[in-house]
């Protein structure tokens, strides 16, 4: 992995400043990062098997609701409504769909964290 223009003094200074900023994070942030890591490792080991089919059901329900909404919200002839393109891009984004697919998991994780807290 080659770094661009690594001999440029300006870029060296940028590099050093960024590196220093990561190495001098405060203790509270480091604790929170450690906690985030433990949560991720724990979630990987403790995901209940019964949640697996729920993801598919949630995704199907989301697509169904979205389709019906689009059908009901179809513009009437003569009404020149401009489509909110950015919102449409958000809705059709694959990552967002993944979020809805995993909604049950995030709800479970939230319950776990509330129980732990």
């Amino acid at each position: 992995m080659s770094k661009p223009e690594h001999k440029d003094p300006f870029l060296q200074q940028v590099q050093a400043t960024l590196e220093r900023s990561a190495q001098t994070l405060d203790d509270a942030t480091l604790r929170e990062l450690r906690q985030a890591r433990y949560t991720a490792l724990e979630a990987r080991q403790r995901r209940p098997a019964w949640l697996l089919p729920m993801g598919g059901l949630a995704a199907a329900a989301t697509v169904a609701v979205f389709s019906v909404s689009l059908w009901l919200a179809a513009p009437q002839p003569g009404v020149n409504e401009q489509l909110p393109l950015e919102d449409l891009a958000l809705l059709e984004d694959s990552e967002s769909l993944e979020f809805y697919e995993d909604l049950d998991f995030y709800l479970w994780l939230d319950d776990e964290q509330q129980d732990a807290g």
Partner: peptide
């Protein structure tokens, strides 16, 4: 595998946060 993943995440968490 868990230990390796823990080690990996620990090595990237500060930069990812920044």
């Amino acid at each position: 595998n868990s230990a390796a993943l823990d080690h990996f995440l620990a090595s990237v968490e500060r930069r990812a946060y920044r």
